[in-house]
Amino acid sequence: MTLEEVRGLIPEPARDIKLNLQAVLAESSLSQAQRWGVAVASAIASRNPTLRRAIVASARREVEAVVIDDAVAAAALMGMNNVYYRFRHLVGKAAYSERPARLRMNRMVKPAGTQVDFELYSLAVSAINGCGTCLEAHERVVTAGGLTEDQVHDAVRIAATVHAAAVALDLAEDERTAA
């Protein structure tokens, strides 16, 4: 299914999301690679298979394969790190933060594309998974790496909208099953 067809599945009460999805993926302060990398990572983190497949397919037409590889890596690694570091900062006991995590995350510093774009995908996923320390840390790294606050803001707008589209599609799929 194309992304356009998937947008058509979003139910009428969620029309705002349908329109936002079109808007955030069109022109923005982000490069084409950043925009689609953020969209793919966000779609994976948002876990609706229909939306994920459509966004990955669109991304394949728009950007090089390394962007998608990095987005997949960021979504997978942050799927782990958001849970782990959120545990550390929510519990807030030195006993845990002093222990080594003993979790591999080597791809964090060996992205196929640029480091700062990889961090931006990680930031978008952290916004969806809801880890405060991770958001602060990745925001610091991407702005230190030269991205503007407008770019960070546009990335998070994509993350928020893709997540909402996944929620709306889950609902639409439930309704179709019930019918």
């Binding site: 782990y84 995590a101 979790l103 995350m105 952290s126 840390a137």
Partner: peptide, 19 residues
């Protein structure tokens, strides 16, 4: 091979992690 390379491991007062 395992090091906490994610900026999530950033602690207050530390410099940004370098790749």
């Amino acid at each position: 091979q395992t090091d906490e390379l994610c900026p999530c491991n950033w602690k207050k007062g530390e410099k940004t992690l370098e790749a």
